[in-house]
């Protein structure tokens, strides 16, 4: 299972990277979003999968999954949301401002 998820993460990262390297702004936003999901999965996997109960202290259970990656990922999800929003707005503002979404045309002047 862990191996399967890591391979899935690898595939998602590949797709995300390919999207980021393209010339179009929207694809870049989509790519960062996919990579965000992949990294979250990777962090969770590094804590071991399905090794115990959910990290809620109950009456009898003593064996829990690792709670630390979960806490890390929780923050990552929320930050990811904010970053996606910011990048999205940045992109569409750039698109509005310059009338193109082609990065090659958005290149700055040399020696600026």
């Amino acid at each position: 299972m862990d191996t399967l998820i890591v391979i899935l993460v690898g595939i998602l990262v590949t797709i995300g990277t390919y999207l980021i390297l393209s010339r179009h702004l929207l694809r870049i936003v989509l790519g960062t979003s996919i990579i965000g999901h992949a990294v979250n999965l990777l962090i969770i996997t590094s804590g071991g999968l399905k090794t115990g109960a959910a990290p809620l202290l109950g009456e009898k259970i003593t064996d829990f999954t690792d709670a630390l990656p979960q806490a890390l990922v929780l923050t990552a999800i929320v930050i990811n949301f904010a970053v996606t929003a910011l990048v999205l707005v940045l992109c569409y503002r750039a698109y509005q401002g310059f009338g193109t979404d082609d990065l090659e045309q958005l290149r700055g002047e040399e020696h600026e």
Partner: peptide, 12 residues
């Protein structure tokens, strides 16, 4: 992108 994906997989 395949190189990056492979790196991440191997690393994981």
């Amino acid at each position: 992108s395949i190189a990056v994906g492979l790196t991440v997989t191997v690393l994981g």
